[in-house]
């Protein structure tokens, strides 16, 4: 390896640092991306097969709290990042309790996905139980339920 002059080496380090920071930025973009996962407990007909809705099912995304869904219910979970674990607790026809854990990843750039629980438990392929979801109408700006916290610095005018 050819020896580099100190200034060259310095530039190389600077370049490497910039690349590293850019990579970190890209990484943050993926692991910090917010997604909404819609969890659906509805009977699904797909290619002639019917996946029957549960009368009651519990589901949790990652380590969030369990959501209880009756038949035809839909709920949502807000998550960060692409890869998630879905835990489903259900009772089968023989009143046997089962727990199912499935790993999946949200497609890049998708804000919302719809997970059909009956299809998931019924053993359908991922493309069936995990589908991209687009809100039917333009999203109205979300109204924040939490009170808007402001600092008490807003007493002075800021422009003339």
């Amino acid at each position: 390896m050819a020896r580099l002059s100190p200034s060259h080496r310095r530039h190389l380090f600077q370049l490497a640092a910039i690349v590293l920071i850019l990579l970190l930025g890209v990484l943050m973009f993926f692991i910090g991306r917010q997604h909404t996962i819609l969890l659906d407990n509805k009977t699904l007909e797909f290619e002639g097969k019917s996946y029957q809705a549960f009368s009651i099912v519990e589901v949790a995304v990652d380590r969030q709290e369990r959501l209880e869904l009756a038949a035809r219910d839909r709920d949502k979970a807000d998550v960060l990042g692409q890869r998630h674990v879905l835990s489903v607790w259900y009772t089968d026809k023989a009143f046997q309790e089962h727990e199912l854990k499935v790993k999946f990843s949200v497609p890049v750039g998708q804000d919302m996905v719809l997970v059909s629980l009956p299809a998931l438990v019924g053993g359908a392929p991922e493309s069936v139980w995990l589908q991209p979801y687009f809100p039917p109408t333009a999203v109205a700006p979300p109204v924040s339920e939490e009170p808007v916290v402001v600092d008490d610095l807003g007493v002075i005018p800021v422009s003339f």
Partner: peptide
């Protein structure tokens, strides 16, 4: 980052990088 929908600590770090 708010527009891109990046939240939490990764969002903060990305905002700092930007």
């Amino acid at each position: 980052i708010t527009d891109w929908g990046i939240g939490g600590i990764p969002g903060m770090v990305l905002a700092m990088i930007l």
